[in-house]
């Protein structure tokens, strides 16, 4: 059950579109900053395979400029550190 969180930046002025398209993808949860062009994304999938598919889908979103992972959990490495 990988759960990962990302900081996502949209292209200028496309924040709304990006939020909309991310929200429409199953397994994605979105939180947006109110005063910056920044979006936080949490993904939740059943296994590695699904995780890969989801990632491809997200990468296909046109308004997405940059995406960086912050933290992640998976059943095997609940205790492992991201550092």
């Amino acid at each position: 059950m990988p759960i990962k969180s990302y900081i996502v930046l949209p292209y200028d002025g496309e924040k709304e579109t990006l939020v909309k398209s991310l929200k429409s993808i199953a397994g994605c949860e979105v939180a947006e900053a109110t005063n910056e062009e920044i979006i936080l994304l949490v993904t939740d999938t059943q296994n590695e395979e699904e995780e890969g598919q989801l990632k491809e889908k997200i990468n296909g979103v046109k308004s997405l400029k940059f995406m960086s992972m912050v933290s992640g959990y998976s059943p095997e490495n609940i205790t492992s550190s991201t550092s």
Binding site: M69, V70, S71, N77, T79, S81, T82, S83
Partner: peptide, 12 residues
């Protein structure tokens, strides 16, 4: 729990 207390990858 461990593994979720870093601000950045690699940060303390």
């Amino acid at each position: 729990s461990v593994g979720n207390n870093n601000a950045l990858p690699g940060s303390p």
